[in-house]
Amino acid sequence: MKTQEELTEIVRDHFSDMGEIATLYVQVYESSLESLVGGVIFEDGRHYTFVYENEDLVYE
Protein backbone atom coordinates (compact mmCIF):
# COMPACT_ATOMS: atom_id res chain seq x y z
CA MET A 1 0.00 0.00 0.00
CA LYS A 2 1.34 3.42 -0.94
CA THR A 3 1.61 6.31 1.51
CA GLN A 4 -0.28 9.54 0.96
CA GLU A 5 3.03 11.18 0.03
CA GLU A 6 3.64 8.54 -2.65
CA LEU A 7 0.12 9.01 -4.02
CA THR A 8 0.68 12.78 -4.10
CA GLU A 9 3.91 12.31 -6.06
CA ILE A 10 2.14 10.09 -8.62
CA VAL A 11 -0.57 12.73 -9.11
CA ARG A 12 2.01 15.53 -9.32
CA ASP A 13 3.99 13.60 -11.95
CA HIS A 14 0.86 13.11 -14.06
CA PHE A 15 -0.20 16.76 -13.94
CA SER A 16 3.32 18.11 -14.51
CA ASP A 17 3.04 16.82 -18.08
CA MET A 18 0.20 19.33 -18.58
CA GLY A 19 2.17 22.44 -17.56
CA GLU A 20 3.80 24.22 -14.64
CA ILE A 21 1.98 23.53 -11.37
CA ALA A 22 1.42 26.51 -9.06
CA THR A 23 -0.36 24.55 -6.31
CA LEU A 24 -1.36 20.96 -5.68
CA TYR A 25 -3.63 20.49 -2.68
CA VAL A 26 -5.10 17.46 -0.94
CA GLN A 27 -8.47 17.45 0.80
CA VAL A 28 -7.39 15.40 3.79
CA TYR A 29 -10.92 15.04 5.18
CA GLU A 30 -12.05 13.33 1.93
CA SER A 31 -8.89 11.29 1.30
CA SER A 32 -7.95 7.95 2.83
CA LEU A 33 -5.13 5.42 2.73
CA GLU A 34 -6.53 4.07 -0.56
CA SER A 35 -7.53 7.31 -2.29
CA LEU A 36 -6.39 10.89 -2.70
CA VAL A 37 -8.86 13.73 -3.31
CA GLY A 38 -7.74 17.24 -4.14
CA GLY A 39 -6.99 19.73 -6.85
CA VAL A 40 -4.25 21.29 -8.90
CA ILE A 41 -3.83 24.89 -10.06
CA PHE A 42 -1.49 25.66 -12.92
CA GLU A 43 0.56 28.82 -13.43
CA ASP A 44 -1.68 29.73 -16.39
CA GLY A 45 -4.79 29.71 -14.17
CA ARG A 46 -6.26 26.31 -15.09
CA HIS A 47 -7.74 24.45 -12.14
CA TYR A 48 -8.69 20.78 -11.95
CA THR A 49 -10.09 18.69 -9.13
CA PHE A 50 -9.08 15.05 -8.95
CA VAL A 51 -9.63 11.68 -7.32
CA TYR A 52 -6.82 9.12 -7.43
CA GLU A 53 -7.97 5.65 -6.39
CA ASN A 54 -6.92 2.11 -7.33
CA GLU A 55 -4.16 3.49 -9.59
CA ASP A 56 -6.78 5.43 -11.58
CA LEU A 57 -6.74 9.24 -11.82
CA VAL A 58 -10.02 10.98 -12.63
CA TYR A 59 -10.03 14.76 -12.97
CA GLU A 60 -12.23 17.55 -14.26
Rank of each mutant, 00 (worst) to 15 (best):
N54A: 10
R46S: 07
Y59P: 03
E34A: 12
H14W: 12
G45W: 03
G39H: 11
Y29L: 06
V58Q: 11
E55H: 12
E30W: 07
E20C: 11
V40S: 00
E53N: 14
E43H: 14
G39I: 14
V11A: 05
F50H: 00
E55K: 14
Q27V: 14
Y48W: 08
F42K: 00
H14I: 15
S16H: 09
Y25C: 05
E6A: 08
S16R: 13
D13L: 14
S32I: 11
S35Y: 15
D13Y: 15
N54K: 15
F42C: 02
Y48S: 00
V40L: 04
V26S: 04
M18A: 04
E30N: 15
K2W: 05
V40R: 00
Y25T: 05
H14N: 06
L36M: 09
V28K: 15
D17N: 13
L57H: 02
E9M: 12
Q27F: 12
V37N: 06
A22I: 11
V58A: 09
V40T: 03
H47E: 07
R46Q: 06
G45V: 01
V37W: 11
T3D: 05
E6T: 07
T49K: 13
S16L: 10
V51N: 07
V37P: 00
D44L: 02
M18C: 08
I41P: 00
R12S: 05
E30H: 13
T49F: 08
E34M: 14
I41G: 03
R46Y: 03
E55P: 06
L7P: 01
L36D: 00
R12E: 04
V28Y: 10
E60Y: 14
T49W: 07
V40A: 03
E53W: 13
K2G: 05
E6G: 05
Q27N: 13
D13A: 15
Y25H: 04
F42Q: 00
L7H: 03
K2T: 05
F42N: 00
D44N: 06
A22T: 10
T49Q: 06
E60W: 15
K2S: 06
E20W: 09
F15P: 00
E20Q: 14
L36V: 06
I41W: 08
E60K: 15
E60Q: 14
E20R: 14
R46C: 07
E55C: 08
R46E: 04
Y48N: 01
S32Y: 10
V26C: 05
R46M: 05
F15S: 01
Q27A: 12
V58F: 14
D56R: 15
E20I: 13
N54L: 08
K2C: 06
Y25P: 00
E53M: 14
E20D: 11
T8L: 12
L36P: 02
G19C: 03
M18E: 04
F42Y: 05
L24F: 10
Q4H: 06
